[in-house]
């Protein structure tokens, strides 16, 4: 039987066969994004690892800070980055990420990965795409956006729905114009506007009420707070987009990154190994369960 799950790349592509030992990377740039969120640009210290390391859009690394532990963070940079830098956009919320937030340019951090499944960029070629994300859900989709821009002719109509709490919480504002120049239609909405905000006030799933889509040829990629994802899925299904073409990226408390410890289990699946990107058809029976 063919698995419905997207294919995982071999783990630790940077260091084949070594699942536990991290590679070391230097922080070469830190870009503050919004309050409590910054992007860390890393360069592997070992030139061989730098050369070998490659990730797919949607995958994550385990970032290791000695003395504090590890945290699973999706890559947010272009997988084809010419400088071979790998970026992670991090919200400083737990012990590990708060202490990563104290690091400076030139500091060194451990990296294991890349782990997990990726956005099915090949599988969705030729389709109209709706990328629906909110808050910290945009960074895991940004590598997919770069991929789409590099291969724009391979995709149909592309719409990026992006929701944030307030206008000042919008991430990567300097890039929005560039994305739109590459025929990516952006719809931004905030939960709370002020009198100076002339964009939308509302929530991401509402977009489906205002626009027409062709369900026969549309794929949805969604990432963000799980409650938002759930409503995006409802709206997508209500418009007859098949569950196999709605792809979700889930976040859980990942520890080992290789499906051994069970911290990130959902039903029979491990988010770190079988995910984080799943077609909704795989998760359908678990999402209407409270505390799924």
């Amino acid at each position: 039987m063919t698995s419905l799950l997207p294919q995982s790349a071999p783990p630790t592509a940077g260091h084949p066969g070594k699942l536990i030992q991290p590679d070391w990377a230097e922080i070469v740039r830190i870009t503050p994004e919004t309050e409590g969120i910054s992007t860390f640009w890393l360069r592997f210290i070992d030139p061989q690892v730098r050369e070998r390391y490659h990730f797919q859009p949607g995958q994550f690394n385990m970032l290791y800070l000695p003395g504090y532990g590890e945290s699973a963070i999706s890559m947010s940079s272009d997988p084809e980055d010419e400088e071979r830098l790998v970026a992670h956009t991090i919200r400083f919320v737990g012990t590990v990420t708060k202490n990563i937030g104290r690091l400076k340019v030139g500091d060194v951090i451990g990296v294991r990965g890349p782990f997990g499944t990726s956005w099915p960029m090949k599988q969705i070629e030729g389709r109209d795409l709706v990328l629906a994300c909110g808050g910290i859900g945009l960074p895991p989709l940004r590598p997919a956006i770069y991929h789409i821009i590099r291969n724009r002719e391979k995709y149909g109509k592309v719409t990026l729905l992006y929701g944030a709490r307030t206008p000042k919480d919008l991430m990567y504002p300097d890039e929005h114009e560039e994305w739109q120049r590459h025929d990516i239609h952006m719809e931004i909405s905030v939960d709370r506007g002020d009198e100076n905000w002339d964009g939308r006030v509302g929530v991401v799933p509402m977009w489906f009420y205002n626009f027409r889509i062709d369900p026969r040829n549309t794929a949805v990629l969604t990432c963000g707070p799980e409650i938002m994802i759930r409503f995006v899925i409802y709206e997508g299904l209500a418009r007859r987009i098949p569950a196999e073409r709605i792809f979700v990226s889930l976040e859980r408390n990942m520890k080992c990154g290789q499906g051994s410890c069970g911290h990130c289990q959902i039903g029979p699946y491990f988010i770190c190994k079988d995910g984080p990107v799943f077609p909704f058809s795989v998760l359908q029976r678990y999402v209407n369960v409270e505390e799924y």
């Binding site: 909110g134 808050g135 929701g163 944030a164 709490r165 919480d169 939960d191 709370r192 509302g202 929530v203 799933p205 509402m206 963000g224 707070p225 409650i227 938002m228 409503f231």
Partner: peptide, 11 residues
């Protein structure tokens, strides 16, 4: 639905 999602303050 919008009001509920805003009320949750999901971001």
């Amino acid at each position: 639905m919008v009001t509920r999602l805003q009320l949750i303050d999901m971001f």
